[in-house]
Design a protein around this nucleic acid. Structure first.
Lengths: 220, 220
DNA sequence: CCTTAAACTCAACACACGTTGAGATAATTA
DNA sequence: TAATTATCTCAACGTGTGTTGAGTTTAAGG
């Protein structure tokens, strides 16, 4: 089963003397496995997701999953890559005046994590897997560390990286509470309400405003 | 082994005709199991922690853990209760002028999650377990939902619960990035630097300040 | 035809897990 | 002493896991 490809079967130039046997297929089953794995990993996390379940979802034998990816970890690694659409989202979020930086970043974050499944599932898989899987942890750390940093341009001081990491961590915390933990109030809240409350705070982090009556408490 | 109690063996009033056999011990082994479980759950999460490992740490047979707690889930439930010291921390954080509310809340959060192991381990166990275990998820959701809400007193509007939940989620996100994911910049940062950057933002969330040049973006 | 190689199926291995039950040891009372 | 109850040990069960290897089917040469 699952060999119902037929479409997209581009003709292969037959260079004689090089390849003899059957040509590698278009990898449609491999893609089906990746899709199933992405959904499962995002929904149930790394340990709760089993190879057998993924194989069943993809209508494939479990051993074929192993043959394709070698191990559960490698399959997970293939699934949790940050989608380019999410990266573009953040690149464009920093274009424009600083006045609305916070709002744009908040919107980009929420869209990346809560948008179309194809875009958000790898991120959710990373987030859920980060508790158990080292690779997910490292990749998520890199994501948090560097994504926002690109955008903290001229106005950034020496602590730009810290501020970027904090803002990103905070927004990841929001997504965790809303989509993984399931805090009722946050689940029920409208996206626009979230933006309204979060944007000024993130703005405060990224483009610090001196507020006379707030002491930083940094007296070391 | 592990019956080295002896101490604190208060004399039991022997009411004749009621109890005949051996007296229940002081529960020192039970406590040893709880301690070992707390540390393991906080460090490795729910699924990665095994009954056999906990039993080995406590120098106890695995079946005795079952006899005490019935199941792994019940053991976890006994371990992840929010320590009263953390609750007190948040209660006192709201006493005082609104001007420094953000800073006090940030400090209370960081101290609760990163303070003494005995206090922070249950919270870390909850956080790590929330991905897999429903009870941890529910309890953490309740924690996020209600803890900060107590303190949003008179100045709170209708969206006080939302603001409280968002602020708490953000701070949980910081702790997650710093102590679980391990984002380098946040790990390296000094606590005082974190407070300096975070306090104004949390203040902004809890006690919203109208800032003329920031639009809320709420146009619904 | 035969050969090669990919795609796929089937059955099982070895292991670790949570959990169970029977029994040994220790403490307390009659 | 004998009886009773708590504490603890030992050996195993059943299940599900990731993983392996042998074998079958299908496509593409020679």
């Amino acid at each position: 089963m699952r060999d119902k490809l037929g479409d997209m079967n581009e003709q292969i130039e037959s260079v004689p003397g090089t390849a003899r046997g059957r040509r590698p297929g278009p990898g449609s089953t491999r893609q089906a496995v990746i899709d199933a794995a992405r959904t499962r990993f995002a929904a149930d996390g790394f340990t709760a997701t089993t190879i057998r379940l993924i194989a069943a979802d993809a209508e494939v034998d479990a051993s074929q999953v192993m043959q394709f990816f070698g191990s559960k970890d490698e399959l997970f690694a293939a699934v949790m890559a940050i989608p380019s659409s999410a990266l573009e989202l953040f690149s464009t979020a920093f274009e424009g005046p600083d006045e609305h930086l916070g709002e744009r970043v908040v919107r980009a974050h929420l869209r990346a994590w809560e948008g179309a499944p194809k875009d958000s599932e790898p991120l959710m898989a990373m987030l859920r897997g980060a508790i158990v899987n080292e690779k997910a942890s490292a990749q998520l750390a890199d994501f948090i560390q560097s994504r926002l940093l690109d955008g903290t341009r001229g106005n950034a001081g020496a602590d730009a990286a810290l501020r970027a990491g904090l803002a990103s961590s905070m927004l990841v915390g929001i997504v965790t509470s809303r989509n993984i933990i399931g805090v009722p109030t946050l689940v029920a809240a409208d996206t626009e309400d979230l933006v309204a409350v979060l944007a000024p705070a993130i703005q405060q982090i990224l483009v610090p405003q001196p507020m006379a009556w707030i002491e930083t408490g940094n007296g070391a």
